[in-house]
Design a protein around this nucleic acid. Structure first.
Lengths: 237, 237
DNA sequence: ACCTGAACACCGTTCAAGT
DNA sequence: ACCTGAACACCGTTCAAGT
């Protein structure tokens, strides 16, 4: 009867959490450590040291506690990381969307804000990918954006699909551009890498690389986003 | 002088590899294990057990060898996983792109093939996100697609940005839809999850969820892709 | 009742000892 | 010269012993 336990971060897993909406404290009365403080500290450590170097021992030490104590607040490392990802999504929530001029503006502003939030925490991107963003903050973001799109007259099916297309684009773009392995734009090693390729073997790629490296990344982000918004405008003026 | 070592999978790291183009064997003469066989086995294990459960001890056992032996072929776990990701990208390479009717078809076919390749190996998605796909197969894919787009008359700057926008969309979409934490479309727990949300707190989200769950995922993928291609057509007829 | 040191079974990586 | 068992310093997680 009891199927395999759902992986932390999946919808089924979040559904089993105490309360989807508020943060507050959880689990066994009023423990000595605040859960929000644990998540904040975990995010700071992931930002500073990366996912690889993040460990419960490191987290416990930063909290002046022991690893065993963490298990009184969370089920384990995966649960902590699921809350870290949701915390990052919380930074993408905008509450003035309804005041925007039209649905195009809502979508564009949402994408840029989401982009900024993810960019601020590049080491969390591989974690975000492994999860469906349906934690409390993820749901809040989705509700606000969809609500604003509907308020501006976009049909519900278009609004839903537009949200999916835009957020997926933002995640993919940010991950590739600012992910853990990405090089800075002006990294001489990147230039050296392309310069070291055989022009006979990669003619189109090298031609494109010359064009791309001269274009600011923000413009490239806006370009793809513009394609999506523009294409959508063709379906609903 | 010597900066910190570049992370495996980054452009700088790939640049330091022996040869960007061919596969073949590498490192210290002719070792007892074929590197391609190691990578194939590693991919199989990641597919079967997930990134989390994959370990060098598991890999060594599957190869009837010891973990120390693996270090005679690769620098470590990260390097093996970088090659695993590039191997998956190899499954997305198409070689009949030049025969397509126009650049729209090239882009659409590329996206679907990429989507299929990633979907076949969902556990590699978090790894792909952590990397810039500039291994041998990644470069081959990029070169072929760009070359076909140029051959069909797309200006080089549009071709480059279109490739980026489409691949990033595919990665983001596939990760969210088929990633390790994603639930199957028809998972009753997903329905239960949305059904358990407070309709007063999430009116727009629930309205959208009803629409979305009745739409096949493939159609949703095609929808976003269509937006990108259509938007691009507005810039270059 | 609540907390946690110390142990458990792992992990990636190294290296001296084998052949 | 090449290979690898066994060790090293970790890791996430558990639980009996402390307060």
């Amino acid at each position: 009867m009891a199927a395999t336990a759902p992986p932390p971060g999946s919808p089924a897993w979040w559904a089993a959490r105490p309360a989807p909406a508020p943060a507050g404290e959880r689990r066994r009365g009023r423990p000595s450590l605040d859960t929000a403080h644990i998540v904040d500290t975990a995010l700071r450590l992931v930002d500073e040291h990366g996912t690889q170097a993040f460990s419960l021992r490191l987290l416990a030490e930063a909290l002046n506690s022991g690893t065993a104590t963490l298990y009184r607040h969370f089920e384990g490392k995966d649960e902590i990381l699921a809350y870290v990802v949701d915390r990052v999504l919380g930074e993408a929530v905008l509450d003035d969307l309804a005041e925007r001029g039209d649905w195009r503006e809502v979508l564009t502003v949402t994408a840029h804000r989401f982009h900024d939030a993810l960019r601020a925490h590049p080491h969390t991107l591989p974690l975000l990918i492994a999860q469906v963003p349906v934690g409390p903050h993820g749901l809040a973001q989705r509700e606000r954006v969809l609500s604003a799109l509907l308020a501006h007259g976009l049909p519900v099916d278009l609004a839903a699909r537009a949200f999916t297309a835009v957020t997926h684009y933002v995640i993919g773009f940010t991950a590739q551009q600012y992910g853990p392995a990405a090089a800075p734009d002006d990294d001489p090693r990147l230039t050296a890498f392309y310069g070291g390729l055989d022009p006979a073997a990669y003619p189109a790629l090298l031609q494109a690389a010359r064009t791309l490296t001269s274009v600011p990344v923000d413009e490239e982000f806006a370009f793809g986003l513009g394609l999506l918004v523009h294409g959508l405008g063709h379906l609903h003026p």
